[in-house]
């Protein structure tokens, strides 16, 4: 289960490759398709590895990518226990 999720705004990407290079868990790769400006945006080749650290989002010079932590189901468990 992935801890995080990458979200990409394809049209803003200029394919600098910073996110691909600096992703600590190697989630991303540049895709072979083009956006309307003719750049190859990245896509998540290993989405299950994403930790949601958002380092890709910090490096992106075009504000085109961000990663968020997915709410783990663990969070819901203590609440349920509390109810009991």
């Amino acid at each position: 289960m992935a801890k995080g999720r990458v979200s990409i705004v394809v049209e803003r990407c200029k394919a600098c490759g910073f996110c691909v290079e600096f992703c600590p868990s190697h989630v991303l790769a540049l895709s072979s398709t083009f956006n309307s400006k003719g750049y190859h945006p990245p896509h998540a080749v290993h989405p299950e590895k994403c930790s949601g650290c958002d380092l890709c989002g910090m490096y992106c010079p075009d504000f085109a990518i961000c990663a968020t932590k997915t709410d783990a189901p663990k969070k819901a468990d203590p609440a349920k226990e509390g109810d009991k």
Partner: peptide, 17 residues
């Protein structure tokens, strides 16, 4: 957006930070 800075220009990254 998208801004005028070249692909890979670091200014966007500094704005991000």
């Amino acid at each position: 957006m998208p801004h005028i800075w070249c692909p890979g220009c670091g200014i966007g990254t500094t704005v991000n930070s």
